[in-house]
Design a protein around this nucleic acid. Structure first.
Length: 195
DNA sequence: CCGGTGATGCCCT
DNA sequence: GGGCATCACCGGT
């Protein structure tokens, strides 16, 4: 079942945890691709590591919009990253970065887009998964509850444990607020970006 | 497996 | 003009 917009209107750190095990679904003319979310990071209101920290700009406009939409940004001159806009009270610039997926469906298409052959290299990082799912700036601002990019609940497909063990640790690649435990991943999962 | 490093575009100061 | 929510590649283990 598609997660409804209300799913994203709540405590952002809690949503980052609840998104683990859910499915990121990308529909396109090339075919459908599905990955199970195995790693996330929360970015909060008043969080110096969040893009929204310095207020709303053209780039961060979507972050300050309604929960349940995709915030896609371009980084390091060559990569995209995708977030789910979250938060209640909403429109404060909170979001959850999707950092890694376990490939589920459309693996041949993902391998073609990534020019990769190893399953573990397909979606084990925020830039990699955007390449595998063809997520670019075109998808910035789209609803996650209908359309070309969706998130489905964990019970949509068989194979996920009911109460998976979750590891909570520090976020990757940031300097500010580096001590906050806002990175979450499924314990022992082979497809996370790094240990 | 691990760590170091260069490539690259654009946002913000 | 600095810095960035990254990645692939290379070399040494």
């Amino acid at each position: 079942m598609i997660l409804p917009p209300l799913f994203y209107a709540g405590d952002t750190a809690a949503i980052a945890q609840k998104l683990l095990g859910c499915y990121l679904v990308r529909l396109s003319s090339a075919g459908a691709v599905i990955g199970r979310i195995v790693e996330t990071e929360a970015y909060l209101h008043g969080d110096p590591a969040a893009h929204s920290y310095r207020g709303e700009t053209e780039r961060t406009r979507v972050m300050f919009g309604a929960p349940g939409h995709a915030y896609v940004y371009f980084i390091y001159g060559m990569h995209f990253c995708v977030n789910a806009v979250t938060g209640l009270p909403d429109r404060r610039g909170e979001a959850v970065l999707i950092r890694a997926l376990e490939p589920v469906e459309g693996i041949a298409l993902m391998m073609h887009r990534r020019r990769a052959t190893k399953l573990r290299d397909l979606c084990s990082g925020p830039g990699k998964l955007c390449q595998a799912l063809d997520i670019t700036r075109d998808l910035n601002g789209v609803s996650l509850s209908n359309g070309l990019l969706q998130i489905w609940s964990a019970d949509t497909l068989p194979g996920s444990p009911e109460n998976p063990e979750i590891v909570q640790t520090t976020r990757i690649g940031i300097q500010k607020a580096a001590d906050l435990l806002l990175r979450l991943y499924l314990k022992d999962n082979l497809y996370i970006s790094r240990k």
